[in-house]
Structures are given as structure tokens and as C-alpha cells.
């Protein structure tokens, strides 16, 4: 009797996850129907976002999301790989544990604080160097890069550490240098895991809101350069959700949310089910 109840309770809780995920998709889809019907494909190809005219084209926001995360990846990936190599192949034990703690520290800082730091300390520097407002895609890309760096470096290091010692030693035994071993043995061996880790970090970066909201500008137009203020999907949602005053406006925002969810779902699923699963099997 109690056994049965307990079993059903656990099963209900487990199924609830599936229900919630499905529900999220359904709700976002239903609420964005109006925008989809009204604008069709224009919703993602037009960049005019004019609430007063009830015209909503998400192109600028989508582009902003894509470019800011791409920039963040371009900046973070080489450094993260460098850090991962440092941690797995160069650093002594003490340095390793010091670094490990530092990474935990960084991971513990809420992303809103990265944004705040970016706005008050990093944007002024960009302004001094490049002129203009300082806020925009470059600032967003850099803050985002800093924010995903620890996570990215940690998972990349973990992937590299799966290379068996004996395999590395075999390359050293043939007269290889550390770099030879890294590029010829470790990276090829852990390739799937490394790529998976990097893409997983990308998946997180796409949905990151608070770190970029401060430094993006929230201006709905396609920027002339990465130094101009613009917007991205999460930034638009964060700034406008509570201000929406027409049902089409709301629907358009839900359309943005759905777009973001699909983007991140696809990216994360590719990372987890293609690369990381392949890495685990190897």
C-alpha cells in the first residue's frame, strides 16, 4: 500500500519534468501564435521593432544574440583551451588546487554581478579606447566571454584529463615535447569531449541574460559595428516584458522567448547527445 503510494509519488515527480518541458514549449508556442500569424517569416527577417506602430521584427535581437555569443566564443575558446592545457599539463599540484578554487569562486558569482562590473568598470575602458558609448556587441561579447570562461576551462580540462597517462607517456617515450603530446595525442583523443564542452558553454552563453543586459544598450536596430549599442533576445525580454502594453507586443516577446529556447535546446542537445555521448563511449 504505502509502497504503491511511494512509487507513484516518485513516478509522478519524474514525469513532471517531462510535463513541464512540454508545457513550456506549448505555452510559448501558443502565446507567440499571434505574432507568427501577423508577421510570418518577417518576424525573424525584419529589424523594425516599433511598439507604438505594433510592428515587431526580431532580426536585430536575433542577430545581436548570434554575434555577441560568437564574439564571446572567439575570445573565450582559445583562452579556455590555454587554461585547460595549463591546468592539465603544466601546473603543479598547488597551482592546480589554487586555480580550482578560483574557478569555483568565479562560478559562485551571480551573473548579474558580471554585468554590473562590466557596466561600471569595463565599458568606460572601451569608451576610452574606441570612443562612442562603450556599450554594444563588443562589450557584451567580452563580458560574456569572461563569464563563461571558468566553466568552459573546467569542462575542457576534464575532457582532456580523460586521456590515459599511458597514451601520453607513449608519445613522450618517442621523444615528444609537451606540445607534441598535447596536439598529437590529447587533443585528438579527447576531441569529442572538448568540442562538446565548448558547445555546452556556447549553449549557456546564448541564454545568459544578466551579464549582457547592462552592456548591450537595448536599441532595436542592426548595429553598424560591434561598437554600436544594439540588443539581443534575452536583453529585449529583460527590458521589455513588463512594459508590453498590447497583445501583439506580448506575443512577439513570447516569440522571442521561444526562439531563444529552441536555439539553446538545439545547441545543448548537440553538445550532450552527439559530442559528449561520443566522448563517453570512446
Amino acid at each position: 500500500m504505502i509502497d504503491k503510494i511511494f512509487f507513484n509519488l516518485t513516478r509522478f515527480s519524474a514525469l513532471l519534468i517531462l510535463v513541464i518541458v512540454a508545457w513550456i514549449f506549448v505555452v510559448l508556442f501558443n502565446h507567440s501564435l499571434e505574432a507568427m500569424r501577423t508577421f510570418g517569416l518577417d518576424f525573424i527577417t525584419q529589424d523594425e521593432w516599433a511598439p507604438n506602430l505594433d510592428k515587431f521584427g526580431a532580426y536585430a535581437a536575433i542577430l545581436g544574440s548570434v554575434i555577441s555569443t560568437t564574439l564571446a566564443m572567439l575570445l573565450a575558446v582559445p583562452i579556455a583551451i590555454g587554461v585547460a592545457i595549463f591546468l592539465s599539463e603544466i601546473a603543479h599540484d598547488k597551482v592546480k588546487s589554487f586555480f580550482g578554487i578560483s574557478v569555483e569562486l568565479l562560478a559562485a558569482i551571480p551573473s548579474v554581478i558580471y554585468g554590473m562590473w562590466g557596466l561600471f568598470y569595463f565599458v568606460p575602458i572601451l569608451r576610452d579606447i574606441f570612443g562612442g558609448m562603450g556599450i554594444g556587441l563588443l562589450a557584451a561579447g567580452i563580458v560574456l566571454a569572461i563569464m563563461i570562461l571558468p566553466f568552459m576551462a573546467a569542462v575542457t580540462r576534464d575532457a582532456m584529463n580523460t586521456t590515459p597517462d599511458i597514451l601520453k607517456e607513449s608519445a613522450y617515450a618517442l621523444g615528444g615535447t609537451q606540445w607534441d603530446v598535447i596536439k598529437d595525442v590529447i587533443i585528438p583523443y579527447a576531441k569529442a569531449g572538448i568540442i562538446g564542452s565548448l558547445i555546452l558553454a556556447l549553449g549557456r552563453a546564448i541564454g545568459e541574460t544578466m551579464a549582457v543586459t547592462f552592456v548591450m544598450g537595448n536599441v532595436h536596430h542592426v548595429p553598424g559595428s560591434i561598437l554600436d549599442p544594439t540588443t539581443s533576445i534575452p536583453v529585449t525580454l529583460a527590458n521589455e516584458f513588463t512594459e508590453a502594453d498590447s497583445s501583439l507586443y506580448f506575443s512577439s516577446l513570447f516569440g522571442l522567448a521561444l526562439t531563444l529556447l529552441v536555439m539553446s535546446f538545439v545547441v545543448i542537445a548537440i553538445a550532450k547527445f552527439y559530442f559528449l555521448r561520443k566522448a563517453r563511449r570512446a
Partner: peptide, 25 residues
């Protein structure tokens, strides 16, 4: 396994989207 997989993806899903969902329901 399906539940594990879906839940794993949810772990990295954009949190602002969860906010939008709760707003709607």
C-alpha cells in the same frame, strides 16, 4: 533515460525563458 536527457538539457536552458513561461501560466 528520456527523463534524464530532457532534465539535463533543462539544466542549461535559458532561465529568462522559464520566467516568461511562469509569467504566462
Amino acid at each position: 533515460h528520456t527523463i534524464r536527457d530532457i532534465s539535463d538539457i533543462m539544466m542549461s536552458a535559458p532561465s529568462i525563458v522559464i520566467g516568461a513561461f511562469v509569467y504566462a501560466v
